[in-house]
Structure formats: C-alpha cells, structure tokens
Design a protein around this nucleic acid. Sequence first.
DNA 1: TGTATTATTGAGAATAATTCTCAATAACTA
DNA 2: TAGTTATTGAGAATTATTCTCAATAATACA
Lengths: 140, 140
Amino acid sequence: MRGHGRRMTPARHAVLDALGERGEHLTAEEVFRSASRRCPDIGLATVYRTLELMTRLGVASKFDTGDEKARYELAEGPKAKGHHHHLVCTSCRRIVDYKDFIKEETELLRKTEEGLAKKYGFRIDSHLIQFHGLCPDCRK
Amino acid sequence: MRGHGRRMTPARHAVLDALGERGEHLTAEEVFRSASRRCPDIGLATVYRTLELMTRLGVASKFDTGDEKARYELAEGPKAKGHHHHLVCTSCRRIVDYKDFIKEETELLRKTEEGLAKKYGFRIDSHLIQFHGLCPDCRK
DNA sequence: TGTATTATTGAGAATAATTCTCAATAACTA
DNA sequence: TAGTTATTGAGAATTATTCTCAATAATACA
C-alpha cells in the first residue's frame, strides 16, 4: 500500500482486516458492516473505493457469482496457503472453494502470465478462474 | 435451446445472431441495439433475460472488465476456433483476446472440470479465465 | 516536532445497470 | 386446431455503485 504512493489510513486497515477475518466471498455491504466495528465512522463509499483500489493493486480480488452484487476476498497470491479457485452453481449461487488441481493450475498460470506479459507487454497483477455449473442439489 | 425445454423465439434468435456477428465483449445495450435490427420490437428486458438464460446454458459467457456493465460473448466451447481468454487492463479497461497457451490451458481445464465434477458432483457448463494487469500504455 | 501539501474521507445525492410486474402474445403439444 | 403456458414488451422499480464536495488527516519536509 505504502509502496504504491498511497496512504495507510484507519479505513483501509479496517477493510483489510474485514477481508482477512471474515473469510471469503464478501459483498461490499458485508465488508462495510465488518469494517464498521473497527472503524465506526467508515462510509460505504470508502469501502467501495478501497475495495477497488485493492483489486487494482492485486491485494484483493473481485468476482461475481451471477447475482448482481460483486464479491471480494483477499487475493493471497498463488503461493499462499489459502489460495483457491471457485466453482459456482448457476442456479442457487452456491460457491465451492476448491484447492484441488491448484498446484498444476498455478504452474500453468505462472507460465501463461509470463508468456502474456512478454507478448503483450502487460504487467499482470492477478487472475480470475471460475467454473460454472449445477451443484448436486440443483441437478435434480 | 430446444433441448432444454425452452422455446425458440424470434427474440432469442436475434440475440444469438447479434452475439454471433458483432463479435466479442458486447454489453447488453449493444446486443439490444444489434438485435433490434432483426427483431425491431424486442425489449431490453428480453435481451437481459435471454443473455442470462444463455449464460446459464453455457451458450454465452458473461464477464466483467471492472467498469460496471457486464459483457457477453458466445461461449464457443473450448474446442471451437474462436475460443479465447481475456487479458484486461485495470486502468483503461482495454481487453486483449489471446489464444496463446489456449491449448495447454484447455487441456488442463478439461482435466480440472472432470475432477471437480467427480469430486463435488457438479455438472460443469462453462469456465471463466481472465488475467488482470496494466497494458503497455498504462504502465507509463 | 510543527506545518504545508494533498490524498482521503463521510454523507448523501445521483447514476445507471439490471430486475420486476403484468397483461398480452405466440410456441409448442396433443 | 385448440389449449397450455412459456415468453414477451413496456415501463416502473430496485439497488449496487459512483460522484460531489467540503472537511479531515497522513505524509513529507523544514
């Protein structure tokens, strides 16, 4: 954060903490509620701004499950323990975090990122991998 | 479409055609404008409904680039010629379609889908792969 | 350590994408 | 061909997200 010429503020701390402790798949509203405990005066707009910033920096990742709210979670780079991808039910919106195959995926992703960076001149900060389908319950 | 117990209507045809000919990354609004030519009475709500349906069926895929409109394109399953993934600039929102690495990615994705389907009991219909970062212009 | 600079904030208004409602219509089935 | 019922169009309604702006406070620097 500081490294990017940004200031570290209580609001940003609160958002970061909220993401860290409340776990995955949080909507902005949920982050707001959590963060409010630590930082009672925080405003919803600030939460949105902070989440967007963090997403840009690759600290958080934003994704959506088909209902209309975006969801956020800590990105914890590919090497982190908690790193996972999502399997989303298109009917009930249930989200399964999976870590299986992550190792192979990660390796391929790394290579792909490297190749893309070189070929297209991008500086790649994050990726989004998601599978969609019907969960066992909704298949019936 | 018919296979899923759905009816084939002029509106759905028009949406499908719009996606087919106008290419990638269309917003609902853009699909609406295109589809209107073929089906002058089509309503925006129908376009949204149809796009959602198609996304569910795995015929279309929905993704977002960070601005607030969702974007859609034909899914053309992993085997199709046009199949590609996205590289999105988090600053200017530019989208690069890339096909490089697709072959390896596809192979891994296939295996992953198979494994996930077995382990979690999902019927997997589609996937979303996206890289985010800064494009050459925005790096400056 | 105090001060200036300027990024950041909170509140609420404003925007705009998307969904909802409902009566009318038209695909499909038998 | 008629009946059933999914689908539609229009516009209203919702609601997630962004914007505005003056006030505040984090950092840099004297």
